[in-house]
Design a protein around this nucleic acid. Structure first.
Length: 309
RNA sequence: CGCGGGGUAGAGCAGUUGGCAGCUCGCCAGGCCCAUAACCUGGAGGUCGUCGGUUCGAAUCCGACCCCCGCAA
């Protein structure tokens, strides 16, 4: 069996490893070209590209898949299976007919959270369970039949970055199971229940806006955890744009008015009153500065207990 | 040449008519106290990113360079 793999970020790597360890032949890894990013907008290759270079795997960077030459190349490889994991672009319907199997690794319990940000939204919504689904690729985004699915718990303090790596690790074993089923000819899919489908739309910088005075502590905490490491969160404290990196929810209550600074702890945390309770802020990053503990930030700004932030 | 912020004690920050290098926290020692993360007293700890220039004198003004970070995805 021959696999063509599509992927472009760190999440893809575990799935790629599952393919490598499946005993099948990896005909090609398809990724996206280097993107301009970082300071000075330097070109940086995708994580998958670096990985393949190191492992000397056959890799191709296609800026588009809607190109006759690209299609010809892929057809010429005569792949049996497409494996797609966090590729970043839609695969045109014309390509979907090439292989016998099209496996998409999707980090959510489909039909929940179809779309671009399936890892973040469960945290933002306060879900306690998510999972990994292996589905067929249909023309409609993330709507193909489900071959296999497994659940994973979301810890109350888990942020999206941690969850992403947990799901990546988790997907390794799941994809391997499915590839084994393919080998044994036992792969069977069940259609998704369209009535239960929900969307996990792409996030933007604006989604990271926070307010200590008009949001509940839990809502703030969910955003802080759900938007790591990108797009991140921000609020304005005394006119300064501050990113909240890590927060916690103490079990204590307060009658202070929202925004009031309650305590600066020796361990580095800072407790603040919100709309409905106390939020403990652990780490922050002022604009243009590096990350620091909330207590360091408060001391550096000479905040005293009781001020409204 | 995409835009921007920054480098001063272990940490976070002040510090302009250039003129003895400061604040909060931490650290060390002692004190107070039934006790303490609280409070009091004392103390250690700095090539002010690097190199050069201007000057009687530079953290401060000028030039070059190094490093860190944000935006932008």
């Amino acid at each position: 069996m021959k696999i063509v793999f599509f992927g472009s970020d760190v999440f893809s790597i575990k799935a790629l490893e599952a393919c490598l360890h499946s005993g099948m032949e990896l005909s090609r890894v398809v990724t996206t070209p280097p993107q301009k990013k970082g300071r000075g907008l330097k070109l940086e290759p995708s994580e998958i590209f670096d990985y393949c270079q190191a492992k000397k795997l056959p890799i191709a960077e296609y800026s588009t898949l809607r190109d006759a030459r690209v299609v010809q190349e892929l057809v010429a490889l005569r792949p049996d299976i497409f494996v797609v994991a966090s590729y970043g672009k839609l695969i045109p319907a014309s390509l979907l007919e090439i292989p016998k199997y099209r496996l998409n690794v999707h980090p959510s319990l489909l039909p929940k959270y179809r779309g671009a940000a399936p890892i973040h939204w469960p945290i933002l919504n306060g879900d306690t369970v998510t999972g990994v689904s292996i589905i067929d690729i249909a023309e409609k985004l993330d709507a193909g039949c489900i071959y296999y699915q497994e659940r994973i718990m979301i810890g109350p303090r888990t942020d999206a970055a941690q969850l992403a790596s947990e799901l990546a690790r988790f997907s390794y074993g799941i994809l391997k199971k499915v590839l084994t089923q393919v080998t044994e000819g036992k792969l069977r899919g069940v259609p998704q229940n369209e009535a239960e489908a929900t969307l996990a739309p792409q996030l933007s910088k604006q989604d990271g806006a926070l307010s200590l005075t008009t949001m509940t502590a839990e809502a703030i905490d969910r955003k802080v955890r759900g938007l790591q490491p990108w797009p991140g969160t921000y609020c304005f404290i005394k006119g300064e744009r501050i990113a909240l990196l890590e927060t916690d929810l103490p079990a204590t209550a307060t009658t202070e008015k929202p925004g009031a600074l309650l305590t600066i702890e020796k361990e580095g945390g800072v407790q603040v009153a919100t709309l409905d309770g106390i939020l403990k802020i652990l780490r922050v990053k002022p604009e243009g500065k590096k990350a620091m503990t909330a207590a360091d930030f408060a001391r550096g700004r000479h905040f005293v207990i009781g001020v409204t932030l």
